[in-house]
């Protein structure tokens, strides 16, 4: 139950929602659909493809499964998943996507790969479509066919779609030629603070479970959660990010802290989305679920991470998100 005493005092199930905001950034994004003979192979391919994809800081891209897809939702009528990938630059996506598809999906038995993102509605004219940025998929992977690959252009209502059929040991690996690069938003977040690990862990799991399968967003960290919230820069040259000591309970008497009395554990849920709207929606769903799950068992406060609002142009104010 929500209660609002004044503009700065919002509580859900007894958990204080701080009047803070999450600061997020413009990113480049794409959506890829992976299908397979059955759910087992789809999950194996997706797990491999999205591995080591938690943060652009060290992994190059942030990538995770967006949704499970039923056979009737996929281009080839088989079970599948949609995967969202985000990077700070288009060139990083163009480097990472073919690499991951080649090593993680092409190798996985029975799989096929399709474009899941398309040009925006504004790009409906042919000229805009032609100039839209594309990320290579089959365009790069076809060479694995060593000349035996087959190009197949299929006429669709939206124009031609090119696929590559690459002979492999279980038949053919079908891979769409390329996929559209679209704009995205990265770095939406909220931080859960509580009495102990049990309380915050339960809250995080409930939040991520509630956000799972929401369209247009991912939570790329392990289990959707990061315990290593970071600040920009470091005392060490060459480190782009380092621990956010203000939220480290073991440093609370040594450095200026943002932890309140009784808060001994903090975990952060980071959200990337294809636009601001799915991030805001996911934050609302996730925070509500966390508070309901652990509000009475040690979750004390919800806040959000930002850099003073000067670095990212997308600001998600917690009180607005929850209204």
């Amino acid at each position: 139950m929500n209660s609002r005493g004044n503009s700065t005092d919002l509580r859900i199930n007894g958990v204080k929602i701080e009047a803070e905001f999450a600061e997020a950034f413009d990113m480049k994004a794409t959506r890829i659909i992976i299908t397979g003979h059955d759910r087992y192979w789809v999950d194996q391919a997706a797990m491999s493809m999205t591995g080591f994809g938690t943060s652009v800081v060290g992994c190059g891209i942030e990538i995770a499964v967006e949704q499970n897809l039923a056979p009737e939702q996929t281009p080839d009528g088989r079970p599948g998943v949609s995967v969202l990938a985000f990077a700070v630059s288009g060139s990083e996506l163009e480097k990472q996507i073919p690499l991951r598809l080649g090593q993680c999906v092409l190798t996985c038995p029975t799989t096929a790969v399709f474009a899941g993102s398309h040009e925006s509605a504004d790009d409906s004219n042919a000229e805009a479509k032609a100039s839209a940025k594309r990320i290579p998929m089959g365009k790069s992977l076809r060479y694995f066919g060593d000349g035996h690959q087959i190009s197949k252009v299929v006429n669709t209502r939206d124009g031609d779609a090119r696929y590559w059929r690459i002979p492999v040991m279980d038949g053919e690996f079908i891979c769409q030629h390329d996929v559209a690069r679209v704009s995205g938003v990265g770095g939406g977040n909220f931080i859960l603070l509580g009495r102990d690990i049990d309380a915050v862990s339960v809250a995080c799991r409930a939040a991520v479970d509630a956000m799972r399968n929401l369209p247009g967003m991912i939570t790329p960290f392990p289990g959707g959660t990061a315990r290593s919230g970071s600040k920009v820069g470091s005392k060490y040259a060459g480190m782009f990010a380092s621990t956010n000591e203000a939220y480290c309970p073991v440093l609370r008497e040594l450095v200026p802290t943002k932890l309140h009395a009784g808060e001994n554990c903090a975990m952060e849920i980071v959200i990337d989305g294809l636009s601001a709207q799915p991030i805001a929606h996911a934050m609302k769903i996730g925070i509500s679920a966390a508070c309901q799950a652990a509000g009475e068992s040690g979750l004390l406060r919800v806040t959000a991470g930002n850099y003073g609002g000067k670095l990212g142009r997308h600001h998600f104010h917690l009180h607005e998100v929850m209204s």
Partner: peptide
């Protein structure tokens, strides 16, 4: 035998 799976892509 086989190799007709791509035909599903035809509208």
């Amino acid at each position: 035998p086989g190799s007709g799976r791509w035909i599903r892509l035809i509208e």
